[in-house]
């Protein structure tokens, strides 16, 4: 027996096929790099982001400069490639600047909701039954509102403005985020390796930090990426209703609502801000789909 027990001297299974060790994130990155559709739309998203950042360099005119004589001019009028709006401001410049508030309103609420909702969800999923019930039943209440309605209710009551709009949107996304994180955490929590970690003598915080988060971050991130386009849409809707971004800040939703009054004069210009919202949102959506399928690695 002691003869056979001397195994460690030679490594067992050394001959087994050595796969390339890439790790989870390595695999995800590899898949993304080989997904032309996602790469393409990701590039557009990047362009939109760059456009927002370098708006002052790109915009041909000052987006705030009004002019009584230049009101509602057609495309190409005196260097105004896309014409002017009802206050005589250059439409192209306003469209370029409009990317700023759209991206901000798309990303900030999602980031807040991911942090707060994710934290609540991990607590709810890992803590005992009572804490879980308190958190999740509260979330259920917010879930009982259609998202647009809740966003309108909260920002409608608080009044317009970008900060109020972002707060309202974050509040709308927190419950959904919380659910995603809670489900993922509860799933991980029931797996043996958590019990194994407990058996090692690790405390709750250490286990959450090293064993739970790594497994929860994936689904949370996937969901967050899909929320960005929802957030952009909802934010532009709020601005359209007179909530969210306040005039004279250039914002696609706001532009849509003011240009709409001149629909018979400049119908094409009137549709442009909406097209910008649509393109941005669909690109984020497709990128998010790409990330989702890239991250769907069976382990």
């Amino acid at each position: 027996m002691s003869q056979t027990a001397a195994l460690p001297a030679t490594f067992a299974d050394e001959t087994s096929p050595a796969e390339r060790v890439r790790g989870y994130w390595g695999t995800v990155g590899y898949r993304l790099r080989h997904d032309p559709v996602t790469l393409f739309f990701g590039a557009i998203v990047l362009l939109i982001v760059l456009m927002a950042i370098f708006a002052p360099l790109l915009a041909p005119f000052d987006p705030y400069k009004e002019s009584v004589v230049l009101r509602l001019k057609p495309w190409g009028y005196r260097g105004h490639t896309l014409g002017t709006d009802e206050l005589g401001r250059d439409l192209l410049s306003r469209l370029i600047y409009g990317a700023r508030s759209s991206l901000l309103m798309g990303l900030v609420p999602v980031a807040i909701a991911t942090f707060l909702g994710g934290t609540l969800g991990v607590i709810g999923g890992y803590a005992g039954r009572r804490v879980n019930a308190v958190i999740m039943r509260t979330m259920d209440v917010f879930y009982a509102f259609p998202s647009v309605l809740l966003a309108v209710a909260i920002s409608g009551a608080m009044g317009g403005g970008m900060v109020n709009g972002m707060t309202a949107l974050a509040l709308v996304f927190i419950p959904a985020m919380c659910r995603v994180a809670e489900t993922a955490t509860a799933q991980v929590r029931s797996l043996d390796f958590i019990e194994a970690a407990r058996a090692t003598g690790a405390g709750t915080l250490t286990i959450v930090r090293y064993h739970v988060l790594g497994n929860v971050l994936g689904p949370v991130f996937i969901y967050a990426s899909s929320l960005v386009s929802v957030s952009i849409l909802l934010a532009s809707g709020l601005s359209f209703l007179g909530l969210g971004v306040k005039p004279p800040t250039p914002d696609w939703g706001l532009m849509l609502s003011t240009l709409r009054q001149s629909i018979y004069v400049v119908p094409l210009s009137c549709a442009l801000p909406g097209a910008a919202i649509f393109v941005t949102s669909i690109c984020f959506n497709l990128v998010s789909d790409g990330i989702r399928s890239a991250m769907d690695v069976r382990l």
Binding site: Y24, D192, F193, A196, A199, Y210, G214, N215, L299
Partner: peptide, 14 residues
């Protein structure tokens, strides 16, 4: 302790 299920007792992301 060495657990019953050798697969699920290891963290898949580690």
């Amino acid at each position: 302790m060495v657990f019953q299920d050798s697969y699920s007792s290891l963290n898949p992301r580690m």
